[in-house]
Simulated assay, not measured.
Amino acid sequence: MTTPPPSRLPVASAPASDARRYVIGVDLGGTNIVVGAMPEDGSREIGVRSQPTRAEQGSDAVVDRICEMIEAVITDARAEEGMPREAFLGVGVGAPGPLDRERGIVVVAPNLGWRDLPLRDLIGERVGLAATLDNDANCATLGEWWTGAAKGGRNVVGITIGTGIGGGLILDGRLYHGSSDVAGEIGHTTIDSNGRRCKCGNYGCLEAYTSGPNIALRAREALESGERSILPELVGGELARITAATVYEASERGDALAREVVRDTARFLGAGIANLLNVFNPDVVVIAGGVTQAGDALFEPLRAEVRRRAFKPAVEACRIVPGTLPGTAGVVGAVATFLQQRDR
């Protein structure tokens, strides 16, 4: 029997009075931390806050920042909704992995420099609330499935593009974690066996080409090889300041180099997504993160590459869409994972 979407789980599994109970969602990324609250029925987002992660300050400082943000969101939500602190059921945390969900441990997070960090309990004990831990990309995928672009999908692949590349899989209506909690590591699938070195230690990973920092890196490399572009003008001549967003801006202005970088990004992503279509045959692929700023300049060649590479029946069955919860999909999904883990 297929588990119903989280949008129906909270209402169906709790009495009507529980509409006034709330959950905190934490989306921890390599660049930013986003924290917000939601009612148990998932009807709205409350008190959402964002701060830079500053991973270079160490795990203790990051955990401190997360807990301070949770307390601030609780204060904001209570002022807005007028509920007591006891109305908060707990905290769902989405973090980069691989993870050990049962023990609440971040096993390794290359973009944060963490190993074997008991993040769930560090947060839960500090704020005095029950806490759960899941992969941040799983959370983003579940968030888009619950209330966003993938709502109504049965088999869904989610890809989050930011500091790294994350992925989530919903198969036959259930979030799929695999045998050891590492299912959905789409960023570390190989698209070129002799390709670029990835932070994970492998070569040719999708992440090594299409994450935000690596999109910027490919643009800088082209400039350093003598290519002409408006990119240096956009960053005052400081090439180190070029980001993926800078590349998208230059592309929108018609810059030939930036457009080539975006097209190459689309081709790399298209090759990776075609593999996923042939393996999982999803009805929705939802792509979230800053890369969606590129709009049709990215999605049109991406879809064309998928059509070129994947089996036609798989292509015809699948929508490839940008996420519709910019900045908060991970928060929404972290709330949903808390509710699902609580009700197991």
Rank of each mutant, 00 (worst) to 15 (best):
M1V: 11
P10F: 15
A16Y: 11
I24L: 13
A37C: 12
D41S: 13
G42M: 14
E45I: 15
V48M: 11
R49Q: 09
T53F: 07
A55G: 05
A55M: 00
A55Q: 08
G58D: 02
S59E: 12
D64G: 10
C67Q: 10
M69V: 08
R78T: 15
P84A: 13
A95D: 05
P96E: 08
P98F: 01
R103W: 09
G104L: 08
V108T: 11
N111I: 09
L112W: 03
D116L: 03
L117F: 05
D134A: 15
W146M: 13
G152N: 06
V157N: 05
I165D: 00
G168T: 07
I170S: 05
Y176K: 02
G187D: 11
T190W: 02
I191F: 01
N194L: 13
C200D: 03
T210V: 15
S211F: 04
S211C: 04
G212D: 14
N214R: 10
L217G: 01
R218A: 12
E227R: 15
I230P: 02
R241S: 13
R241I: 01
R241N: 14
I242P: 00
T243F: 04
T243Y: 03
A245P: 02
E249Y: 03
G254L: 10
D264N: 11
A288N: 11
T292Y: 05
Q293G: 09
G295Q: 14
D296R: 15
R308E: 15
R308F: 01
K312H: 13
A314H: 14
V321S: 04
G323D: 04
V332I: 14
Q340P: 00
D343R: 14
